[in-house]
Each structure stands twice: as structure tokens, then as C-alpha cells.
Simulated assay, not measured.
Amino acid sequence: MTTPHALDTDQARTRLHELIVLDVRTPGEYATGHLPGALNIPLDHLDHALPDIRHAAQRGDLLVVCASGARSENACHTLAAHGITTATLTGGKTAWAADGHTLHHPDSARRTAWNMERQVRLTAGAVVLTGLALGRLHPAFRLASAGVAGGLVYSALTNTCGMASLLAKLPHNRPHQGDLDATLAALRAG
């Protein structure tokens, strides 16, 4: 197993022409703007894409990107466990944009989706408020609010997010099969 490493935005920008960039955000997030040349393979499709990612890694260095760096770090660990050396972009797409680097916006973005962090905040807040409101009818409903609070604490301690994993499975966060097939073909072709 190899150990993943990180590149800051300036290091990544100077090497962008030689890197194979994999964006592990949802397709909706990817459509809101991504690093030039980045290919979208959502984190929950990584295992399916392993053979093509391994093939691409034989041709060049891989840079894995997400919104903030947390999902890409998880992806790097997953790929390292399969013998694939990668780097993550420190701070993710957010840091890339904040440092003034160019983002690519597809001409034909099919949908405008919220980033995953925003979706998690909305869902967590809605469940907490619902649990508190229904808790006036029966105290047991407050357990939903407590469960979300516990999940948020666990998420912070482990740098993972179960709610984001669940939300990523919703239809608006899933890639169209044709899009994923085209991405995997691009990895194979090089």
C-alpha cells in the first residue's frame, strides 16, 4: 500500500498539464465548476472505476479533488489500499477558486445542484427542527434531533459524513450512466 500525499493549489496549477485530475464530487457539484480537464468519478463509484483508474495511473500522476479535501483524502486512501498512488488537492476546489485559479464550467450543465455540504446542512437542520417540533407531541421525536447531533459530532471526529454518503445516493446526485461510461472511456484512452 502506498501513502497518499497532497499538493497545494499552486503546485497543482503548475503541474496541471501533466496530471490526470479525478473529481470525486457528485455530478451536480462537478457541473457547478471544476478544475480544467478534471474527470468526474463520484466517490461512491470509485470501486467500479478501479481498473480504469489503475490504467490511467500507469500513464501519469493522479490528482484527486473534491470540494474541501475531505472526500478526496478518503478517495486517496481507498486507491492507495489498491496500490494506486495519488495526491489530493489541499483545500479542494474551494481553495483552488479562492486562490484565483480558473474553473471550468460546462456549457451544457444539465442541472444546478447544491454542493454536498449545503445539502447536509439543510437535511440536518430540517431533521433537527422536525424532531423538536414533533417533540411537543411526543418526547420520543426529540431522539431524531439527538441522533443528528450525535452524527455531526461523530462526523467531525472521524472526518467522514454518513449523511453525505446517503445524500449522494439520491437521483439528483447520481451520474448518468452515459456520463460515467464516457469518463471511464477517457481514462482508458488517455
Rank of each mutant, 00 (worst) to 15 (best):
M1I: 03
M1E: 02
H5R: 14
H5E: 13
A6F: 11
T9Q: 05
T9G: 04
A12K: 04
R13N: 11
R13M: 09
R15G: 09
L16H: 11
H17E: 08
L22H: 02
L22D: 01
L22P: 01
D23I: 02
V24F: 07
V24W: 11
R25Y: 00
T26C: 03
T26N: 08
E29P: 01
A31F: 03
A31N: 02
T32L: 13
H34F: 07
L35Q: 06
P36S: 10
A38C: 06
P42G: 01
H45L: 08
L46A: 12
L46W: 06
H48V: 13
H48N: 14
I53N: 04
Q58E: 13
Q58R: 14
R59C: 05
G60Y: 15
V65W: 00
V65E: 04
A67D: 05
G69E: 01
A70R: 07
R71D: 06
S72G: 11
N74D: 15
T78Q: 11
G83F: 03
I84K: 02
T85N: 15
T86M: 03
T88H: 12
L89Y: 05
T90E: 09
T90K: 12
T90R: 15
T90A: 15
G92Y: 01
K93V: 07
K93M: 10
T94M: 11
W96P: 01
W96F: 05
A98T: 04
D99N: 14
D99Y: 15
G100S: 08
G100M: 15
H101Q: 14
H105K: 14
P106L: 02
S108L: 14
A109Y: 03
R111I: 12
T112E: 13
N115Y: 10
M116F: 02
Q119Y: 14
Q119D: 05
A124V: 12
G125F: 09
G125T: 01
A126S: 12
V127A: 08
V127N: 07
V127F: 14
L129A: 10
G131V: 05
L132G: 08
L132A: 08
G135T: 00
G135A: 06
R136K: 13
R136D: 11
L137E: 01
A140Y: 10
R142C: 05
R142M: 01
L143E: 09
S145M: 01
A146I: 00
G147R: 07
V148M: 10
G150E: 05
G151S: 11
L152S: 09
L152Y: 08
S155F: 07
A156V: 12
A156T: 09
T158D: 10
T158Q: 07
T158C: 06
T160L: 11
T160D: 09
C161L: 08
G162V: 10
M163Q: 09
A164E: 07
L166D: 06
A168V: 03
K169G: 09
L170Q: 14
L170M: 11
N173Y: 07
R174N: 06
P175R: 14
H176V: 06
D179E: 11
D181V: 02
T183S: 06
L187V: 01
L187T: 07
A189C: 15
